[in-house]
């Protein structure tokens, strides 16, 4: 579904990614773990066309997207749920959701059906649909950001740090729904996380990014048992 090959990315003169390769197949959950500043978000933003790779190729659903503008990549139904939620604070919950379907041309019946689907996954959003998004708690905003992304019926979805700044209880709930959504929509999922344990425990495969280099990858289960990974990322 997604194939990133040998990309180099620079911010001005500073190199952020070195020869990174990364692949997501049909219908799998892939996690990318790594510490702060490892280049995880840079990789996501490069896939989404915010940064342009200086070298290498990015292919999504059989099309080259390495030099395509962000809004057109979204039009190809690759959806990115940004780090830090990034909801539209002065719009209602419902308007935020409607904006999520901006790239699609839904009839009002389809729009309502999509909204109902999202409200089914996140009943809290239904209760708060006319509230301003900026006035909600962090967890609720994260739910909104996810639901907003799913409004466009993506062919693949990438979550960037969905657990950032949330209480442990809500984090569990968040990951449960991410798995549930994946099972019902049957689309590949990428999760970028500092919370390595959570990300690895729900994913099929894991990539490890360190200082802009891909340090390794493998089946999540096997990696979780490796003493090295335990020591570096799982706190023991």
């Amino acid at each position: 579904m997604l194939k990133v090959e040998n990309i180099d990315v620079y911010y001005g003169k500073v190199q952020a990614l070195y020869d990174v390769c990364f692949e997501v197949g049909e219908n799998e959950i892939v996690s990318i773990i790594g510490s702060n500043g490892a280049g995880k978000s840079t990789l996501m933003k490069t896939i989404m066309g915010v940064n342009k790779p200086a070298k290498g190729t990015i292919e999504f659903n059989g099309e080259q997207i390495g030099s395509v503008k962000t809004n057109l990549i979204v039009g190809k139904r690759l959806v990115y749920i940004p780090e830090g939620r990034e909801v539209f604070p002065k719009m209602s919950v419902k308007d935020n959701l409607v904006m999520g379907a901006y790239s699609r041309k839904y009839s009002s019946a389809e729009m309502n059906r999509k909204l109902e689907e999202m409200f089914e996954i996140y009943p809290r959003l239904k209760e708060r649909q006319s509230q301003l998004a900026g006035s909600m708690s962090g967890g609720e905003q994260q739910m909104l950001a996810i639901a907003r992304g799913l409004m466009s019926e993506p062919k693949m979805v990438m979550y960037d740090e969905p657990s950032l700044g949330l209480s442990p209880l809500i984090v569990d709930e968040m990951f449960e729904t991410i798995v549930k959504v994946k099972q019902t929509m049957k689309i590949p999922v990428v999760i970028v996380e500092q919370n390595a344990f959570m990300a690895m425990s729900i994913s099929d495969r894991t990539y490890i990014l360190e200082n802009g280099h891909m340090k390794g990858s493998g089946a999540s289960k096997e990696l979780m048992d490796s003493p090295e990974i335990k020591k570096a990322y799982l706190g023991g």
Binding site: N71, V79, Y80, E86, V87, G149
Partner: peptide, 8 residues
């Protein structure tokens, strides 16, 4: 940022 990710 978010606007671009909506496809705007």
């Amino acid at each position: 940022k978010a606007a671009a990710f909506m496809g705007i």
